[in-house]
Design a binder for these strands. Structure first.
Length: 772
DNA sequence: GATCCCGTTGTTTTT
DNA sequence: CAACGGGATC
């Protein structure tokens, strides 16, 4: 054990670490050494006689959990840390539920449904109710149910709650409560829990079984929660229950970084923590060790635009550093090119490696232009997020076998594989099976097991019996072989591997490789040696649980891969990089057009921006494009309002008008707009063309200089017809030349005499005022 | 039962 | 501009 571990802390950090008993709230500003405090505190607890078995630590990602364990071990110099209970809310509760599920009537090897599985079940139910799944969109219904569960509202409460019912009525979807009810029953029948159930059922478990609650209250005497600002009411209540006896609850968070309200998180949890317990000790970590003064000052000033925060003053001893560069390009492609060029230059000029750069964006869809430009310059990169490996069809199919082997109640997975690969169990048979299972109130699997008894005949019954025997043979294998061997057997007996191997198309090849990769991952999982006697759960059930609960941040962070990283700002939370590009800073994109309707939404967008800025250690670029493709159309975007909230002092706006500068120089061709030109201008600080008005807001001049009428207000697009005179905010007055597209996606061709000629305008997107 | 073509649809953010 | 789903077709 390092004797001097306390010496490495500043005063506030030490105060947080040595507080052992009683509720503690650590308000940890960005880059203030939060992880260090958390890990040191755990080590300190253990050094002061607290048994590792009695410590529960909840994190946001599995990766954070792993790191935390490693760091505690390092401080302690022993492997006692392996006994700590560290993990994400979801994975920890999944593990506890796997031990207790029988009490709730679930199999201990219950399946965990990911979002796709859940939506698929919902779609089935919606169709069963003869509802239109275009009106009752599974995604919409899923979100409603998810929100309900995250506020601990079951189907009955949902249907009895006036406010909720009113909302559904107003949305013209009064039957969501009914769907919720059926969905809950169906997933239960399937022996499956969705993500939200892992919290919701955990709560139910603790509430309904006092002996269970007592057991875990006694076990988890010390509870630590990271990223507390992103917890939702369900998590809040569970923590409250678990911590009620000892009240040794330590929460760590930063209200300025609360960015998950769309997932039910409520910032109130952290704002109210002091009122939840008596004698809450509050420690504020206000020294930032990560960023330059310039970066931190910009961040502080931006976040100051939000109301009602926990008061704190984040400061740093670091150097002032470079100014923050603000860059405007004409298009999204040029934005991509600019970033790639700048990365090349910075590598040469400041000796950075690829791994020092990150490109942060608001939406996953924005990655495209950066991928292209990086590929063109042969800069290796890696995208985090997007479609996960485990969401690919061939992987889901294979995993469905494993799920059925573990839990035959899982109808969703069963339906997926019952005739894949084709084995003569067709649509009619499946329908019949489902009807029988409903009639007799048994699972689909039981119907299959008793197929002959239920009157299936000829080839069908043979096919079914062969299938049942096959699955049972896998189950038998499970008791003598490990997860990997069983998986290989599945691949062989089902012919899936062979079939994919024989498919020589490019996609077929990719699918084959993906399945091989899956098998490899199972192998790795089963064969990773137990670390110093640590008993890891190597069962198939544990594997399946792990892969569905993987977070984006968890995907292979090959420490040695020297590549530029691309990710959403959400995915970047908790990370830091020497050089950060935050891109797409435009109105309707960042802040998102979906989140500008209430103060709360806008403030969350601003916090997101704050998170983006504070990821940077030494250099920060902020970029935006004049126009970009969205929904297949070129749209013009105003620069983000957040850009106006930054203090001039630390900002270098000299490239703000990249496009205009280029025009001023007369170089019209994009292709010769090389990075070197850009770089040269940067070094020489050549004043851009519109320098004289720099002090004002030169960047924010609209594409044309139309000033909207005083009474400008958007009219209903439905009323617009050909020949009508309209006014556009930017393009001025024009005439509708033609209209196309369906009722709610009409596209008008409008002639703007002063605003640049013909424009195609999406009516439900652009704001147009009818003149006559 | 598979494949192809067409139209529709969607872009916040994720455990 | 994708990607996905539904329907028609073989």
């Amino acid at each position: 054990m390092k004797a001097n571990y306390l010496d490495e802390l500043n005063e506030q950090q030490r105060e947080a670490v040595i507080h052992i008993n009683g509720p503690l709230m650590i308000v940890a500003g960005a880059g203030s050494g939060k992880t260090k405090v958390l890990t040191t505190r755990i080590a300190h607890l253990m050094r002061n006689g607290v048994d590792a078995f009695n410590i529960l630590s909840l994190t946001f990602t599995n990766k954070a959990a792993r790191e935390m364990k490693e760091r505690v071990e390092k401080i302690l110099g022993s492997s006692e840390a392996r006994n700590l209970y560290i993990g994400t809310f979801h994975s920890v509760f999944a593990r506890l539920l796997r031990a207790e599920a029988h009490r709730l009537g679930y199999p201990n090897d219950f399946t965990i449904y990911d979002t796709d599985d859940a939506k698929s079940v919902l779609k089935t139910i919606i169709n069963e109710l003869n509802l239109d799944d275009k009106h009752y969109k599974p995604t919409f219904v899923y979100n409603r149910i998810s929100a309900a569960k995250n506020s601990l509202m079951g189907p009955d409460e949902y249907q009895l709650d006036h406010l909720v019912q009113q909302e559904d009525m107003r949305a013209n979807r009064p039957l969501i409560g009914k769907i919720y009810d059926m969905y809950a029953k169906r997933t239960f029948k399937n022996g499956a829990m969705d993500f939200d159930d892992l919290l919701f059922k955990m709560y139910i478990l603790l509430k309904s079984f006092p002996e269970v609650l007592h057991k875990y209250q006694h076990k988890f005497r010390y509870i630590m929660i990271d990223e507390y600002q992103d917890t939702n009411p369900a998590q809040y209540e569970i923590i409250k229950l678990l911590g009620a006896v000892n009240e040794n609850i330590c929460v760590v968070g930063d209200d300025a970084q609360s960015i998950y309200s769309f997932r039910g998180a409520t910032i109130q949890n952290i704002l109210q923590f002091e009122k939840d317990y008596d004698d809450v000790r509050v420690v504020k970590l206000e020294q930032n060790y990560r960023s330059t003064k310039s970066i931190l000052n910009v961040a502080n000033e931006v976040i100051a635009h939000n109301k009602g925060q926990i008061e704190k003053n984040l400061w740093t001893d670091n150097t002032e550093g470079d100014t923050i560069k603000l860059v405007r390009t004409m298009t999204d492609n040029e934005e991509g090119k600019f970033v790639a060029d700048t990365i090349s230059e910075q590598k040469l000029r400041n000796h950075y490696d690829n791994r020092d750069f990150v490109i942060l964006y608001r939406t996953n869809a924005q990655s495209r232009s950066f991928e292209e430009s990086l590929r063109r310059k042969a800069i290796p990169y890696r995208i985090y997020g997007g479609v996960s490996f485990y969401q690919r069809k061939e992987i889901k199919d294979f995993v469905a076998y494993l799920r059925v082997v573990m839990n035959t109640r899982d109808e969703e997975s069963l339906k997926r594989i019952i005739n894949y690969p084709v084995r003569g169990i067709g649509k009619t048979t499946i329908e019949k099976t489902l009807v029988l299972s409903n009639e007799h109130n048994i699972t689909m699997w039981e119907v299959l097991e008793r197929a002959r008894e239920f009157g299936f005949k000829g080839g069908t019954v043979e096919a079914i019996e062969a299938f049942v025997i096959m699955i049972k043979s896998f189950q038998a294998l499970l008791s003598t072989h490990n997860a990997y061997d069983v998986s290989v057997a599945v691949g062989k007996s089902t012919n899936i591997v062979k079939e994919l191997f024989n498919d020589k198309t490019t996609e077929g090849l990719a699918r084959y490789e993906n399945v091989q990769e899956l098998l490899n991952s199972i192998k790795e999982f089963t064969e990773t040696p137990d670390e110093e006697g640590e008993l890891l759960d190597k069962s198939m059930g544990s594997y399946l649980q792990q892969i569905t609960l993987l977070t984006d941040a968890d995907q292979g962070d090959d420490k040695d891969s020297n590549v530029v990283k691309l990710m959403t700002i959400h995915a970047a939370k908790g990370l830091e990089f020497p050089v950060v590009f935050t891109v797409g800073l435009e109105e309707t994109l960042f802040p998102s057009g979906m989140s500008i309707n209430t103060r709360e939404e806008l403030e969350e967008e601003r916090r997101l921006f704050y998170v983006a800025i504070t990821r940077a250690k030494s250099r920060l670029w902020l970029t935006h494009a004049n126009s970009r493709y969205r929904f297949g159309n070129l749209v013009q975007n105003e620069p983000s309002r957040f850009l106006e909230e930054m203090p001039e002092k630390y900002i270098d706006r000299s490239y703000a008008g990249g496009g205009s500068v280029r025009n001023a120089f007369g170089g019209g061709s994009t292709s010769n707009w090389g990075g070197n030109n850009m770089f040269d201008r940067m070094q020489k600080k050549t004043p851009p063309a519109q320098q004289p008005t720099q002090a004002a807001k030169p960047t924010f001049s609209p594409a044309t200089n139309h000033v909207p009428s005083a009474d400008f207000a958007a009219d209903d697009p439905a009323e617009m017809v050909v020949g009508m005179q309209v006014e556009h905010q930017k393009f001025g007055f024009g005439t509708i030349a033609s209209l196309e597209g369906a009722a709610n996606n009409r596209i008008a061709l409008i002639v703007f005499p002063k605003g640049g000629g013909e424009k195609k305008i999406m009516l439900n997107y652009a704001k147009l005022k009818i003149v006559r």
